[in-house]
């Protein structure tokens, strides 16, 4: 898949193990798309929002905010999403208050864990498919910075699970809508982010299989924090045995090559096991991981295609 194809989807979902770089990749994809003149919204469905901070901006919170020209973000949280969504479904504020702003309903939200996910996914879906401005969709591209693996899968399959339990009511109708957007390869891609390490790589392999099994259109696998080899084995051998003057340089080179070897190893493992394009994103040695780093990641992604 080419990147331009990826960025011309309506909805791009980014998931993967915790801490692998989902927010980084989401921000970089958004930046790449915004630079091509697309109007992009990043929806962060996680405990703590991260993307605005990458661009040196204060957290967006649950209100959509512009971070850069054409690039917006919003933090999707269950309570606010619930309210927005329930109001759309129920229409009457007072009725909403009676039904939802009482202790019973709070309980209800906790007891039906998927309800939180439903309303959050519902909000993302609405921005991707129904949020219009003067008759046109407001966003060219919505990027969903999704929860980590296990929870991420639960999150994306929530319509499927819900429809198995409930098949009536307005919610069920919307679930069908979400499901068909999430299954349409013309409109949606689900990307995976991982690292060249054992657990993240294994988790990515399992996640890839699970995502395909559920029929989510496969986007690329981003192999993040990749170390490319810098020294030939001969050079490394010479330098590490180069005497006291080269002790520091030798250790640094050896460290680098051991991480490069892991990168190459897990790249091989992933290429064998995963049925989607693999896109290495280099490790960037940044003093603080901000706009500059995201820019580098965006360039790396753009040129890898």
């Amino acid at each position: 898949m080419s990147e331009s194809a990826l960025l011309s989807r309506r909805l791009v979902v980014v998931t993967g193990k915790g801490g692998t770089g989902k927010s980084t990749v989401s921000a970089a994809l958004a930046l790449a798309a915004a630079r091509r003149g697309k109007k992009v919204l990043v929806c962060e469905v996680v405990a703590r929002e991260r993307v605005a901070d990458f661009f040196g901006k204060p957290p967006s919170g649950t209100r959509i905010r512009e971070l850069l020209p054409n690039l917006y973000s919003v933090h999707v949280r269950p309570r606010e999403a619930m309210r927005e969504y329930a109001l759309m479904t129920i229409k009457f504020e007072t009725l909403y208050k009676i039904a939802f702003e009482n202790p019973a309903a709070r309980y209800f939200l906790a007891a039906a864990p998927s309800l939180a996910e439903i309303v959050m996914l519902g909000k993302v879906w609405w921005h991707a498919a129904h949020d219009t401005e003067r008759g046109r969709l407001r966003w060219d591209l919505v990027i969903l910075d999704a929860p980590a693996t296990g929870h991420g899968l639960t999150f994306l399959t929530v319509p499927e699970v819900f429809l198995r339990l409930v098949n009536e009511g307005p919610l069920a109708r919307d679930m069908h809508g979400m499901q068909s957007l999430l299954a349409d390869p013309k409109q949606c891609s689900v990307c995976v982010v991982t690292l060249p390490e054992e657990m993240p790589a294994n988790e990515a392999i399992e996640l890839d299989a699970a995502l395909r099994q559920h029929g989510f259109p496969p986007g690329p696998l981003f192999l993040n924090a990749y170390f490319a080899s810098r020294f030939t084995p001969q050079e490394l051998a010479q330098v590490t045995r180069g005497g006291p003057l080269l002790l520091a340089a030798g250790e640094a080179a050896d460290n680098h090559e051991s991480r490069a070897a892991l990168s190459a190893h897990y790249e091989g493992v992933l290429r064998n096991a995963v049925q989607r394009p693999i896109l290495p994103v280099p490790f960037f040695f940044e003093r603080s991981f901000g706009a500059q780093a995201i820019d580098k990641v965006a360039h790396a992604i753009e040129s890898a295609l």
């Binding site: 329930a86 479904t89 129920i90 009676i98 039904a99 039906a112 339990l165 409930v166 009511g169 919610l171």
Partner: peptide, 18 residues
């Protein structure tokens, strides 16, 4: 009333299971 509204939201199966 509360139940009715909740049921409208989730369908009544869920309430039954609950």
């Amino acid at each position: 009333l509360v139940l009715r509204t909740l049921a409208r939201f989730t369908g009544s199966d869920f309430l039954r299971d609950l």
